[in-house]
Amino acid sequence: MIGSLSHRTLLQPRSLTDALKMLRDEGPLVPLAGCTDLYVSLNFGTLKGTRFLNLWGLAGLKDISVRGDVLSIGALATHTDLIRSPLVQKRIPMLAAAAREVGGVQIQNRGTLGGNVANASPAGDTLPVLAAADAVVVLRSAAETRRVPFTTFYTGYRQSVRRLDELIVGFEIPAIHGRQWFRKVGTRAAQAISKVVIAGVAPAGRAGSVRVALGSVAPTVVRATRTEAALAGGATIGDAQRTLLEEIAPIDDIRSTSEYRRRVAANLLARFWADAHRK
């Protein structure tokens, strides 16, 4: 490993309360969940933090449960937990679909939903799903619990409203009416970061409203509300695609080009809408 350890320390809380006190009193600390993002930077020698907080194994933060009409998913639920959870499969199958496309099994066994969100890469595969699901991010500090709508969680490229003394403790997902849809376009089926990733919900009969969210096409995940309105208002797919292209701002990078991403995003929108109307 390139990154040296001698100047780094790890704090090991026994409980969430413990962890939040450490963040308040001994911060700034970098939380460690499944380390599938953090240890890549550590091994590269680009990890800046020197003081870490071990979240792995904090009881309760892995729970997936339903209260009333709301599905709660703990921040430490791994992608494998999401794939296997009957509650996730039933209530938000597009999240299970996204988790299935993250890395390979080794990454799915360790990478967590909280880590995917906190890492704040615009290419995170679960992000468009959470945006389309109208999910709420539950943040907790020693002093308070805050509930932030997922669509306002990010404030810019790799920036979020999470304060340094807060942890993401989980996500709340209200009941979703309508048909869910998820597609990821990457270099290969597994182990590849998305070039474009999209989640959608289409009304089924009278239930539900149109929802469309995309990743890898802007500095943060995009909830394409104008495109949704166009589709809901009966616009042609061509018009809806033109609206979508105004709502996204993809860039050229090592994985793809802006032009390619625009084409693929427009095509995926058409595919989503066609599938939504297939009986």
């Binding site: 790890l10 460690l32 380390c35 599938t36 240890y39 071990n54 792995w56 080794q106 360790r110």
Partner: peptide, 18 residues
């Protein structure tokens, strides 16, 4: 790859504390 509690993980991405 090694198995931790029976599940495959990449040991290059696992701190021993975990």
């Amino acid at each position: 790859t090694v198995l931790v509690d029976g599940a495959p993980v990449n040991s290059c991405l696992v701190p021993i504390a975990q």
